[in-house]
Simulated assay, not measured.
Amino acid sequence: MSIRKPLDLPPDIAKAFVKDMKAYFAEEDGLKRDVIAVRQLNTLKEHQSPRDKPLRLSDVKAMFLEMKGMVG
Rank of each mutant, 00 (worst) to 15 (best):
F17Y: 14
P6D: 05
K19S: 11
M67A: 11
R33N: 07
E28M: 08
V18H: 07
Q40E: 14
I3Y: 06
D8T: 12
K22T: 09
R4C: 06
M63P: 03
T43L: 11
L7E: 01
R51G: 04
M63V: 05
D34F: 03
K61W: 04
D59N: 12
V71G: 02
L65N: 13
G30D: 09
K19R: 08
D8L: 12
P54D: 12
V35H: 01
K61I: 11
K15M: 13
G30I: 03
R4T: 06
V71H: 01
R39W: 01
L31G: 02
M1E: 12
D8V: 04
S2H: 13
N42A: 11
V18I: 15
K68N: 07
D59F: 02
L55M: 05
F25H: 10
I3A: 05
F17P: 01
R33V: 03
P50M: 04
K53T: 09
V18Y: 04
K5G: 04
D12G: 00
P11H: 14
L44T: 10
L7P: 04
L57E: 03
L7F: 06
M67E: 08
K32S: 10
A16T: 10
S49E: 13
R51K: 15
K32I: 05
Q48Y: 00
F17S: 03
K5S: 13
I36T: 07
Q40T: 07
H47S: 00
M70D: 12
Q48S: 01
K32M: 12
R39A: 11
V18Q: 11
D52L: 00
S2P: 14
K19T: 14
S58L: 11
E28G: 14
K68H: 05
G30Y: 08
F17K: 06
G30S: 07
M21K: 07
D59E: 00
P50I: 06
A62V: 02
E27C: 11
F25S: 03
E28W: 10
R4S: 10
S49F: 02
Q40W: 04
K45V: 00
E66D: 12
A16V: 08
G72V: 09
K61S: 04
F25A: 07
K22V: 08
R51N: 14
P11K: 14
A37G: 01
A26Q: 10
L65Q: 15
V38W: 08
P54Y: 04
M63K: 12
K19M: 05
Y24C: 09
L44P: 02
M1P: 08
S2L: 15
K22H: 15
V38D: 04
G69T: 05
A62L: 08
K22Y: 05
P54M: 01
M67S: 10
Y24Q: 12
A26C: 01
Q40P: 02
V60C: 08
K45S: 01
K32V: 09
M70E: 15
K68L: 05
V38E: 13
E28L: 07
A37I: 05
V35N: 01
E46F: 06
